[in-house]
Every structure is written in C-alpha cells, then in structure tokens.
Design a protein around this nucleic acid. Structure first.
Lengths: 329, 329
DNA sequence: CTGAAAGCGCTAACAT
DNA sequence: ATGTTAGCGCTTTCAG
C-alpha cells in the first residue's frame, strides 16, 4: 500500500519549491537551469510521481475531459462513432467520458448535467430529442456542444452527420430503376428524431413525382413487425421495404430470413445499414452504408477546433455515405 | 455567460456557513432545522447551483469514477459489454470513463496510468496482454482492478468471463456428431491472449481422443485468409472451420459468401459469435453466442462489491454461453 | 532563475 | 443546530 506522492514530496526531495515543480510539469523550462530540470526529472521518476488531475483541473480550469453521450451504446453505430472520436481526441491529449442515454431523454438530461459537474471542456452529443429547448441550458453554461448524427430544431449547435437526403435520393433512383411500384418505409417514430424525418421526407419528395406508391410504418414497442411485413407482402404492386436505420434493417431481415421469404423475389429490401454487415446477409443487401468512424473523426476534429477557437462554431459538416449495390432489389 | 456559482455563494445567500451547505449536499440533515434545510433547498434551486465534482473528489477522496478499458471499442463485443457495465454502475451513482486500447498494449499501459491520474475508484479491464507483470503496478497503487473477458497469467486479479472451455467442448460434441473428420481452427495469435489459447486447447483435448484431425491457423496481418480457406477446402476429409472469435467468424463468412462457397455443403463453419448476428448470415450459422451484456452486468456488480468490501476480491465469475444450433454444420 | 503565499471549491474535525 | 478552521494537490501572481 503505497501512499500518494504529491508535488510537495517531489519539491522537498528535489530541494526546490512547488512552483518550480509545477513549472516543470507544465513544460515551462523557460528559465530553469539544466541541472534543476535534470534533478526534478530524476526525483519524479524515483518517486514515481504523477500529478493529480483533479487538483490541476480545480486550479487551472483545464480538465482535458470531453463528454460524449450516445443514444444507445449497444448500437454498432455508437461503437464506430466512439472509435472515430477517440482516435482524434486521444491524440490531442484529451480523455473521453462516455455515457449512454439508453434512448431516454430524461436520462440524457441527467447525464448532461453530470458531465458539466465533471468540468468537461466540451460535449459531443447524439441527441435523443429534436427539441432545441432541451439543450439551451448548455449554451447558457457556455460550454461547447457539438451534435453528431442527429440535428435538433432549431439547429442552434453545430452538427456532424451523414448526407441523409442525398444518400436516400440516390437509393431511390436505384429502386425506381428496378421498377418498384410501392415503397414501404419502416422507421422508428418520425416525431422523435429529425434524421428519421429527413430520410422519410426525402423519399416522399422523390416519389411524389413518380407513379410509385408509398407507405409508412412507424414501429413502436406495440408494433407487430411480423404482421407489418406480411402486409407488405400482400400488395399487388411490386414492393420494396426501405429500412430507415440499421436496427430496423436487421429486425426486418431477421423476420424475412427466419420466415424463409425470398429476397428479392418475394419482396425487395434496402435501407440504412449501421453495421456494414449487410454484405453477409441473405443474398447480399443493397444498402446505404454510413462512414460512421469518419463521422467520429470529423466530430473529434470539430470539437478540437472549437476548443481552441470559440469562433469556429456553428459550422455543420456533412459526411457522405456509400450506396452499396448488391442483390436485394 | 453565467459565472460559476460555488458553495460560498449558496452559503452567503442562505445566510449559513459552507459547512451547513456541505452537510445538506451530503444528505446529513441529522440535526438541521427544517427551515434551514428548506431555505438551502430554495437557494440552491434559485441559483441553479451544482457542486463541483473535482473539488469534492479532491477533498473527500471519492470520485465516483470507474475506469473501463476495452481492447477495441469498434468491436461489437465492447458495445454490449459497456452497455452491461454501464447499467449497473450508473444505477449506483458511478460514472464510467471508457477508454479504447485499440489493441495496443503500450496504449493500454498509458491509459491505465491516465485512469489512475483521474483518481478512478476502480478499473475494469479487458486486457490486451496475458502478462500479469504488466498490471502488477495497479496492485501496488491499491486500486481495485477487475478483469473481464480475458485472464492473465498468473491470474492475480478477479475475472469475469464466458465459460470458454465448456462452450467449446459442447460445440465440439455437435461437430463430432456431424461426422466431421477435420477441424481447422482459425484464430488470432494464441500467444497474446489467454482466452484464445483456452479455446484452442479445449478443442485439442477433445479431439485427441477421437479420430478427428486438427489444424490451427493463426491469423496476423500478413496472413492471406482467402488462401487459408482455399486450403481448408482442399482436404479430402469432411472439414469444418472453427472461428475462435466473432471477428474471425465474420471475416471467414465474408470470404465464403462472396466466393459463393456453399455452407455446409462445401465446408462446415462454426465458432464464437460476438455479434449475435449469425442467425442472419448464409444458411444460419451454428455458433456459440456469448451473453456479453450479462458479462457486463456481472462485472459491474463485482466492481461495486469490491468497492464496498475490499475482501470480496479474487472471486472469478463464469457466465455461460449459448450453443445455437442452426444450419452451418 | 526561483520561491512565498494565496486560493481553486469543497469536506471534516473540532468547537460551541 | 451550526460555525471555525484547516487543508486536499495543484497553479499562479508577485517578488526577489
């Protein structure tokens, strides 16, 4: 059981003042004799001294902590996102405090406060709500907030996200080329998340000018997804299911495959794939693959930019997605 | 731009001393007049006061921070693990500082030090090395360390993990029932991680007493996996590929499927599946599905137990895995 | 080139 | 039932 060695211990041992040690720690050897410097270096390594971050933060107002809140950490999207953010932030000497809102907006509010209590220098948030008012207080706290993946309304913070509209429209082109006559969009509730709405509206707009029919299924806990899929199979028109995110896509595929429904013979399937696994599933699923890790990288860089220059804010960054043409249409 | 309100501001406003506020914050209303209590409550909410965690930690030696290091956060295993840990720790009022060792043992060492610098109260680690000596210093620091998923040698810290040996042997029974004559184990290098070794040895032991042949392919960056699979296909005996973890399984399946190799007609495939997605792939992959989120839950609980009672240490916990019998054998 | 002293925001004896 | 006082481990003027 080793007792904690503090800056005072080092100072005593090196026969200098705490001030000098502090200078050393912060790389301010501006005018420090080479010998004191060497002596301090020696003592620090002898004593195995490491400065206490909490104390440093308390005094200097620099915590080198960035808070990150994802809406659901068990989602593959989060993994890749966190990987991407972590790469950039880690290299810059920042630590991430990662938290999981578990799809609860109450929990998310609580976590935001907890992050602030920890004196984080910035927050990267994948919001669980589209309501800007929920996040206004962070602006008042004067702490940089960067949204990722999903926007809010109005968009009072910068955002890094996929080119949802563009990718959706490109996929629509593919669908229409294949002469589909009806599109069934299966999505989690549109009202909660702007991204879902954007994806749906993009489809709606494109379809409007064609002779293609459109259905929307909003999936909640009460929804019997199997029944909805059966219904989609019953249409007389040539039909395709469009999954609005990776979670939906996988649930749909699970049903289709376990029920032995042939893709694309019986029904076409496509949508957004967060997992980038759709190459392996069924006949290979034609899908929109987001560059999630890159979104993370970009977010990290944006955050660093804000941190060093408050004025660099409010620039939204769009990351393109890849349209993967496989065999499910 | 709101200036930070401190305990002193609250004390002044409520016309009591900081001590009293502190008592209030820590729920020690033992003997506090109802009216002061109410007044403080009022002032705190008026001022929108929130105590500074760093200052609290500095003084009280309680940070309520638990460090978690995963070997690769982009791996689905991490997602579910973190979900599981977070559920338990969050409910108990702890925050996680999650870090990604990115499969680098040097980085992992660095991160461990950084966690200690942050005054974490405990560390949950999915180790990137099997060498106990790398972690000895944590014992010296007297901070609770809990290993998860993978052990080290010797096992000087408690561990929460899957019943690797048991699950592997059960799967072997299935394989042998299907009259396979040769098993090709495809694994990342055994030498690095104990779990890999355990899985392989379990197979080896079981196979020894049968007339079944066994090959081992250790995959590094230099390995051409496609060639190895081709080789597996060339054997005259009825052959099955056993993937030692989810990452390998998915890489193998990707090759098999894109090359159009029929499963199980041309070759059987099975192994450990971290993603729990193998139901969707190809004909449905018979695999070992770990209860990763549960492993996380158990780890969280173990950590809480250590925190409140140092003596509860050194108890290794085994979580069973599920053998999913599908159509790839 | 170096140190003394004050204080960051909070908690915890020890008083009263 | 509440206040006084002394720090936690560090950084930072201000002096020399």
């Amino acid at each position: 059981m080793k007792k904690n060695v503090t800056i005072s211990d080092v100072a005593k041992q090196a026969e200098v003042s705490k001030t000098t040690i502090s200078r050393y720690l912060n790389g301010r050897f501006g005018n420090m004799s080479a010998e004191t410097k060497d002596r301090i270096e020696q003592v620090i390594s002898d004593l195995n001294y490491r400065p206490n971050r909490q104390a440093q933060a308390l005094k200097s107002k620099r915590s080198y902590l960035i808070g990150v809140i994802v809406s659901d950490i068990s989602n593959m999207y989060s993994s890749l996102l966190l990987k991407g953010i972590g790469e950039v932030l880690g290299d810059a000497g920042y630590q991430m405090i990662i938290m999981d809102a578990a799809n609860s907006i109450e929990k998310e509010q609580d976590l935001l406060h907890k992050l602030i209590d920890q004196s984080v220098e910035g927050i990267i948030l994948q919001p669980s709500s589209r309501e800007a008012s929920h996040y206004q207080f962070i602006k008042d706290e004067n702490i940089p907030l960067l949204l990722v993946d999903r926007g809010i309304e109005p968009l009072i913070f910068p955002l890094v996200t996929t080119d949802n509209e563009d990718a959706t429209k490109k996929m629509l082109t593919l669908i229409l080329e294949k002469k589909y006559e009806r599109i069934v969009v299966i999505s989690e509730p549109l009202a909660d998340i702007v991204t879902r709405e954007i994806r749906y509206q993009s489809i709606k707009e494109t379809v409007k000018r064609r002779k293609c029919l459109l259905n929307l299924v909003e999936v909640t806990k009460e929804t019997n997804l199997k029944n909805e899929i059966k219904k989609s199979l019953s249409y007389s028109e040539k039909t395709v299911i469009f999954a609005s995110n990776g979670k939906m896509l996988m649930e749909i595929l699970t049903i289709l495959i376990t029920e032995g429904i042939e893709i694309p013979e019986k029904i076409g399937v496509t949508g957004f794939d967060d997992w980038n696994l759709s190459a392996l599933v069924g006949p290979g699923i034609t899908s929109i693959e987001q560059q999630t890790q890159k979104i993370g990288n970009v977010s990290g860089k944006q955050m660093l930019a804000y941190l060093e220059d408050e004025e660099k804010k409010d620039e939204t960054r769009i990351v393109t997605a890849d349209i993967m043409n496989r065999n499910s249409l």
